[in-house]
Amino acid sequence: MLFMFELLRNHRKKAAALLLIVMPFLLMATSAGASIGEKRSPGPVQWMQRGVGMAQYGGHRTVGGLGSLWNRLTAGDVVEENERLREEIARLRDEKSRLIGVLQENARLREMVGLQTRHPEYNLVAAVVTGRDISPYFRVMTIKVRSEAKLEPRMPVIAAGGVVGLVHRVYGDFADVIVLSDPRSRVDAISQRSRTQGVVQGLGHERDYYAKISYLLQKDELRVGDVMVTSGMGGIFPKELIIGTVSQIESSERGLFQEAQIEPAVDFSRLEEVFVLVGTR
């Protein structure tokens, strides 16, 4: 042991460089690679991941609070007005802003309740979006579930508007969700009108959240405006969940397949609450 310490002390630079170089390969070796759905990490790693999740959640709540504080500060910045009136206006604005927030949340929750009513067979668990990935290459969101439900990798995540994505990694109450437009995402889809089948793949580029439909045969009839829904063939998503609308078709003279671009039904940039589909009744 003493010899090891001595060795490390004498070769600090080499040891640090070695650790740094080994680290990425260690991470690669202990993960699922580019596929979706990571196994649960060992206990200590879960705790560390949960710590990161808690920090994101705390930050999410703080930023929300700072936002309303900023509103309060900027609302009362009229020099000419009487001090009492300013305070009154600021208070009323604050109340109004909070009321609008509550009304918007109410509307979202109503939509979600509507989703549950439309699909009583689904066992849905509500979750709040707390963070996003910090690279421009992927489309991942961190969610925090609001119940004791146990999440598993590859569980479908939906919103009132339609499909959101798949659970990738679970740590405690938190989970990373691979969004439909992430380049790793693939969902079997079918056109609601013509029953044309294809695979919706995330692009991770162009207009932020767009995806494309691949493996469409040249003879398949698809039109701009067609609504694509889940086909249920992948065995993960149930049938007939709305994915999005065809926005552009790119058929080529050569090759077996044509491609189409799809605009997801859900606006991922504004998502605040989602549902995880933990099973069917």
Binding site: R12, K13, A16, A17, L19, L20, M23, P24, F25, L26, L27, M28, A29, T30, S31, A32, G33, A34, M48, Q49, V52, G131, D133, I134, S135, Y137, F138, V140, T142, H168, R169, D176, I178, R184
Partner: peptide, 28 residues
Amino acid sequence: FVSGALTLAALLPVIEWLVSGPMGFYSL
């Protein structure tokens, strides 16, 4: 060098979790 390398090594897992890409590639 040593201080920077060790700090970065300790940050790499956090960065990977927050990036949520295929593990290891961003760190590399």
